Simulated assay, not measured.
Amino acid sequence: MTDPESPTSEQVAALDGAVAELFDGATVKGWVAVQTEHFRNLLFAQQLGCWILFTWNDGTIEIEEDYPPYALVLDLLTDTFTDEDRGDLTVKWADAERRDDLWQRYGIHESPGHYMGLAGNPRKRS
């Protein structure tokens, strides 16, 4: 059964390679990049999941995995994201003109494990 509040697979697939800026008022607090990939769940059914990389303006990073029913993706698609440390942030998705530049800087260029290691390390991302 599909939750009517959940994004569709098509909506999630459209986020592959997307980057958004996260604002607190007029101040950019961070960036979020999304990479999608197909995987098989415990019942061996094919599903679309995604990795979501948060890069904060203080240099820290976090990477999260999201899959049906897409809790994080749903928040990001509502244009308001609540971070427990940073509060409510406005999500502004980059248009095609800025997307490539932002992806170069804040996109997912390594395996998710790489970013997990960086997130667990107190040193900031270079």
Rank of each mutant, 00 (worst) to 15 (best):
E5G: 10
T8V: 07
S9H: 14
E10M: 13
E10D: 13
V12D: 00
A13W: 07
A13F: 12
L15Q: 02
D16P: 05
G17H: 01
A18H: 13
A18S: 14
A18L: 09
V19G: 08
A20C: 06
A20P: 01
E21G: 06
L22A: 00
L22V: 05
F23Q: 05
G25N: 07
G25S: 04
G25Q: 10
A26K: 12
T27L: 09
K29V: 07
K29Y: 03
K29F: 03
K29W: 04
G30I: 00
W31L: 00
W31M: 00
V32F: 01
V32R: 00
T36W: 07
T36F: 02
H38P: 12
R40C: 14
R40G: 13
N41R: 02
N41V: 00
L42I: 12
L42D: 15
A45H: 10
G49K: 05
G49T: 04
C50Q: 05
I52Q: 13
L53V: 06
L53H: 12
L53K: 15
T55L: 06
T55S: 10
W56V: 01
N57P: 05
D58N: 12
D58Q: 01
D58R: 02
G59E: 02
T60Q: 08
E62C: 11
I63V: 11
E65I: 15
P68C: 07
P69S: 15
Y70K: 01
L72P: 05
V73F: 14
V73T: 07
V73S: 01
L74Y: 08
L74K: 07
L74F: 08
D75N: 09
L76K: 04
L76C: 06
T78C: 05
T80N: 11
T80P: 05
F81D: 07
D85V: 08
G87I: 03
G87T: 03
L89R: 15
W93Q: 03
W93R: 09
E97A: 15
R99W: 12
D100E: 15
D100C: 11
D100I: 06
D100M: 14
L102W: 00
W103N: 04
W103Y: 10
I108M: 03
I108S: 01
E110D: 04
E110R: 10
E110S: 02
P112Q: 06
P112L: 03
P112N: 07
G113T: 10
H114M: 04
Y115K: 03
A119L: 07
G120N: 10
N121P: 08
P122L: 00
K124T: 10
R125Q: 10
R125W: 10
